[in-house]
């Protein structure tokens, strides 16, 4: 690993100022940056350690019924906090199905969405065409190994999926990232932080130099919710497909459904058509099944990942039933 120079930020404003230096990156949990450096994905000249910034850790209830989570809160601490566990089971479950216990003790909830794609070509230690590694170099995966890659929103320039679990649950909960920079504070809906390949295949997310995720805000409690993660081994593995579902029910009739899929696109993928058609339908009815199918009309497989459409559709159906049972 090449050396770099190092500074510890003492406040949010201090971090934002330091991060405006060229070739400077932040480190919090460190579970990604050190591996990027080992592989050669990034070579920052300077690294700003943001873990000592006060007031960026913890979970607090908001007056409107929602919660605010400091960006530096560790994954395990978020998932096991009573406010999260009881009010947002889909989010707690998604976190606890991510990574390993040790990594969840290090990784922060604000850094988690900034992990990069797990495409083997992007993570290759030998030079391999990848537009996310070297812009304009092409995509090796579109005609290569891509059985875990996208079924929604891909282009010939990038077919990778975003691998994180927690943002899938957050997308279903209409949560927002609070992002600060030298100009002020803005709130960005969770699914909008990632950049689709049609917008720019080389980019990972919308954050620029000096942008700092400081918190996550979630709205009203969603107790009737569940997260289902399908993967090739039972633990410590990225999703083949995941489904986050939050329901409002009247008996077994759906008043409102919010559904996001993970590992199917470069961002958490809301099933808008399904959500609309589920309103007024009974859990387990043939109409509900048809509504789920409607969400996959625009799914588009690569040559060797059509199986993911079937798995995603069935995972959605199962996650709806799991959420309904949580009521």
């Amino acid at each position: 690993m090449r050396n770099f120079s190092y500074a510890q930020a003492t406040s949010r404003a201090d971090a934002i100022a330091l991060l405006q230096q060229p070739e400077t990156m932040s480190i919090a949990g460190g579970t990604e940056l050190l591996n990027w450096k080992r592989i050669g994905i990034v070579e920052p000249a300077r690294v700003v350690d943001i873990t000592g910034i006060p007031d960026m850790e913890g979970v607090e209830a908001l007056p409107n019924g929602g919660v605010r989570i400091g960006a530096l809160t560790k994954l395990n601490d978020v998932a096991q906090h009573a406010l999260i566990r009881d009010a947002y089971p889909v989010f707690s479950q998604a976190i606890l199905k991510a990574a390993s216990a040790q990594i969840r003790n290090l990784a922060t909830i604000g850094g988690n969405p900034l992990q990069r794609v797990r495409c083997a070509y992007f993570r290759a230690e030998e030079p391999t065409p990848c537009n996310k590694r070297v812009a304009g170099s092409g995509c090796s995966a579109v005609a290569g190994i891509h059985d875990k890659h996208a079924i929604f929103g891909w282009t010939e320039d990038c077919v990778a999926v975003h691998p994180a679990d927690p943002p899938v649950a957050l997308a279903a909960l209409d949560a927002a990232y609070v992002i600060e920079n030298a100009k002020g504070v803005r709130r960005v809906p969770v699914q909008d932080i990632h950049v689709m390949p049609s917008e720019n295949p080389a980019w990972h997310n919308i954050l620029g130099n000096g942008d700092l995720i400081t918190a996550i805000e979630i709205g009203a409690a969603a107790t009737t919710s569940a997260y289902l993660k399908i993967r090739e081994r039972e633990s410590f593995e990225y999703a083949t497909v995941s489904a986050a579902v939050a329901l409002d029910l009247d008996g077994d009739v759906i008043r409102r459904a919010r559904i996001a899929l993970g590992s199917v696109a470069m961002r958490p993928w809301r099933l808008n058509a399904t959500e609309q058609q589920l309103v007024g339908q009974r859990i387990g009815s043939s109409e509900a099944v048809a509504a789920v199918d409607a969400g996959f009309v625009d799914a588009r497989p690569l040559s060797s990942n059509a199986y993911k459409i079937t798995i995603a559709r069935n995972a959605t159906l199962r996650a709806i039933e799991l959420a309904a049972r949580a009521a």
């Binding site: 460190g30 579970t31 050190l34 690294v47 216990a101 040790q102």
Partner: peptide, 9 residues
């Protein structure tokens, strides 16, 4: 708390 020491500066 248990952590991976390879991921910590």
């Amino acid at each position: 708390r248990r952590v991976n020491s390879c991921l910590i500066l």
